[in-house]
């Protein structure tokens, strides 16, 4: 699947992205040299823990960075256009029309004083210049597509009348109403119950096939990502540490962080023995780590890991990792 799309080149290409926050406490490099390719018809998973920079990556793509955040270096290329160089007016046209985003909290993304149908119509009118009547028609169709029960009635309801799962479906309908090429989903199921989560994930998979959509799926949950992603990038402390096909990441992790994350998830039927936890705390973004970012928590650490930062290097076709000792880790994990 990937080889096919690679012929056409990636839909979105991020090169050496640096997004920095100039806070009162000091410089926070929220994204520090990130490379990522997103292909059409593919779901790219971006996995990482809180504060690793995954949401900032998404906001950098959307051009929605809150102050004091700024892209200081690098490029984000969407089909030949570098989004970091575009003026705000042009970005506004791309946002919502070519790239759409859904968030963790569907609650706060919807305006409580308008019906959900009206809000989706407004988005269609703004981006596509359709009449109210046409917009209403499209909205009805989209509500059906996202499998909202009795879509006609739902359109006339207010956000508080819908459950969390239904609100997220409305958000998906709104995001897809303008036929975007790329959908960024930032922890879309984290606030939902497992049984509801399952439905949303299945819906995203279905819609991707129907609309030949590219999805950037951001989550902290390795279980969720394996349900949707074709390719997975693992992020740690503002950088991607490993990136490969979904199956490959789970079968053959080559970075000690990926390996540690996989091991530290409890497995059903896994017995009562201790979980092999990753020691230590998440890194403090204000204090840059010398050498490899992961070395203070790494089981495989050697002297040279403290000195020099490993580059994200291709170790097998389509499999990149940023670790000096990746070959030994492979042996360990098997």
């Amino acid at each position: 699947m990937r080889d096919e799309s690679k012929n056409n080149g990636p839909l979105l290409e991020i090169k050496n992205l640096q997004t920095h926050f100039f806070t009162n406490e000091g410089l926070v490099k929220a994204v520090d040299g990130l490379d990522l390719e997103i292909f059409s018809r593919e779901t790219s998973g971006l996995v990482g823990e809180s504060g690793c920079g995954k949401t900032v990556t998404a906001l950098s793509i959307m051009g929605l960075l809150p102050s004091p955040g700024k892209i200081t270096q690098g490029s984000i290329t969407l089909q030949g256009r570098d989004l970091t160089q575009l003026p705000e007016r042009k970005l506004q046209k791309i946002r919502g029309k070519e790239i759409a985003m859904i968030f963790q909290e569907p609650m706060t993304s919807l305006n409580p004083i308008f019906t959900v149908g009206h809000q989706v119509e407004e988005a269609i009118i703004f981006h596509q210049g359709k009449s109210r009547k046409e917009a209403r028609e499209i909205t009805r169709e989209m509500f059906g597509k996202v499998e909202l029960p009795s879509p006609e009635e739902r359109m006339n309801e207010y956000p508080h009348q819908l459950s969390g799962g239904m609100k997220q479906r409305v958000m998906i309908a709104m995001a897809l109403s303008c036929q975007p090429k790329l959908l960024i989903a930032d922890e879309p199921t984290t606030a939902l119950d497992v049984t509801i989560q399952q439905g949303i994930l299945a819906l995203l998979n279905k819609l991707q096939d129907e609309h030949s959509l590219a999805i950037l799926f951001i989550t902290h949950d390795l279980g969720v990502i394996s349900q949707v992603a074709n390719r997975i990038a693992v992020m740690y402390a503002a950088k991607i540490v490993e990136c490969a096909q979904a199956g490959e990441i789970f079968r053959n992790p080559h970075h000690p962080y990926t390996l540690g994350l996989l091991n530290s998830i409890p497995k059903i039927g896994g017995g009562e023995k201790r979980l092999p936890a990753i020691p230590g705390q998440l890194p403090n973004p204000l204090v840059p780590v010398k050498g490899c970012r992961f070395h203070p928590r790494c089981f495989f650490v050697k002297d040279y890991c403290l000195e020099k930062e490993p580059p994200l290097a291709e170790i097998a076709p389509g499999h990149k990792t940023a670790c000096w000792r990746h070959s030994e880790i492979k042996a360990q994990s098997n």
Binding site: E25, R274, P279, G280, Q281, P283, N284, P285, V287, P296
Partner: peptide, 16 residues
């Protein structure tokens, strides 16, 4: 296992 779990063995990294 105790050693691994103890963040005390890590350098001071308390907070922002």
């Amino acid at each position: 296992a105790k050693m691994v779990n103890s963040p005390g063995s890590q350098p001071e990294n308390l907070s922002l």
